[in-house]
Write a protein that binds this DNA or RNA. Structure first.
Lengths: 209, 209
DNA sequence: TTTTACATACCGACTAGTTGGTATGTCGTC
DNA sequence: GACGACATACCAACTAGTCGGTATGTAAAA
């Protein structure tokens, strides 16, 4: 997808800036985070910033792409439970994992692209598309697992994998907002628990096919 | 709660500023919306702004309070279905209503306080609390109806009314984000449809009590 | 009835600081 | 000696908030 991520020779300014953007935007939002602030957090100069990115918007796009890669690794590759064979059990382990992530301050578990798209959907179609691409990539990847579970166990009401996948994403994004408002992940975790119950009920005695 | 909302003698600058803030913040976010912009949209001067509000933050608080009142009216008072007697049917009509609201551009149906808290939870505890108060007021009001439904029909797994209420709120807030990312309410409506199916399943053959 | 006193609602120029972005310079490597 | 990777200095535009002033009350004293 992106032009240069086959080899990352140095952990240099570019990736440090993206990491800093991830952190600051999740904490403060996109508009409230200035380029100067990002540079300071990354420990690089403003010249370095505009050497690597033509604009703040372009950094947003790169950070969204990097967020996709990071999520794919942290959620779909590294965890041991991704090798559970039974697809329904693997899906439920996925939900449990997302629930256990809800701990500590919100900026530690919330979604970079979800935060960014909230502010930019109307003012920058570029950022909106970049955020959408990241969210959609997650949902489409998850839908593969859901499809496998449906194939093996069946599902109620002919629910589609991709539709359930977007619902899971919606519950998570919504849980993040509740956690931010409450300044506590308690209600958010409860919400994901409701989601897990729903999924289990969907796959209970569902018609195969 | 607020000091002066018993009588609203004039639809003057103050309320025009709050209305403009609701509109602009839902479209652009809180930080990206300047005081000048709000004044221009409201058609009043900057002097008038700071006559009525000591700061941009104070406008945010007032706008959150007004949002609560607006939601209570638009969702719990005016619609005809709020007089449906059967509490479960009333709850399901509520969900349908929230789903049918998802139409047109996102700034027309998304949540002012949900947008504001996303950006301010870490930087302004004042705004975070104001947003939380609005969200919590909605959830607690809805929990009254859910409790009535539980009392009449019972519910699975001993699910609590307030917990389900926050889950409903989470699904809605998450649906808003998906709609913003997709620039279309389609996936958001599907997500609320999942929510409705979940609620119906929760109340199917639930143990009374 | 007029005058004085004070309050509310509003205006728009101004300021001090911040914003994203640019122009130019330096330094090590190929 | 050209080039990529950075740094320093700078700018015009914009930011939230201030300030002196005006127009319109309202109510009691003269």
């Amino acid at each position: 997808m992106s032009s240069r991520n086959a080899s990352a020779p140095r952990p240099s300014a570019r990736s440090k800036l993206i990491d800093a953007a991830h952190m600051l935007v999740r904490k403060q939002g996109y508009a409230a985070t200035s380029v100067d602030e990002i540079c300071a957090a990354a420990g690089v100069s403003k010249g370095a910033f505009f050497h690597h990115f033509a604009s703040k918007e372009e950094l947003g796009v790169a950070a969204a792409e990097q967020w996709t890669a990071r999520a794919d690794e942290l959620i779909f590759t590294l965890p041991p439970w991704v090798r559970i064979e039974d697809p329904l059990e693997r899906l439920l382990a996925h939900i449990d994992f997302r629930m256990f992530m809800l701990e500590g301050p919100p900026e530690g578990f919330t979604c970079f692209v979800g935060t960014m798209v909230q502010e930019s959907f109307a003012s920058s179609d570029t950022l909106r598309r970049a955020s959408d691409a990241s969210i959609s990539a997650y949902c489409e990847r998850l839908a593969v697992d859901i499809d496998a579970a449906i194939a093996r166990c069946g599902i109620r009401d002919g629910v589609s994998a991709i539709s359930l996948s977007y619902h899971i994403q919606a519950v998570l994004q919504g849980a993040f907002i509740i956690a931010k408002a409450k300044n506590s992940p308690k209600e958010a975790r409860d919400s994901v628990l409701h989601l897990k119950r729903y999924i289990k009920m969907l796959f209970e005695r569902g018609e195969t096919g």
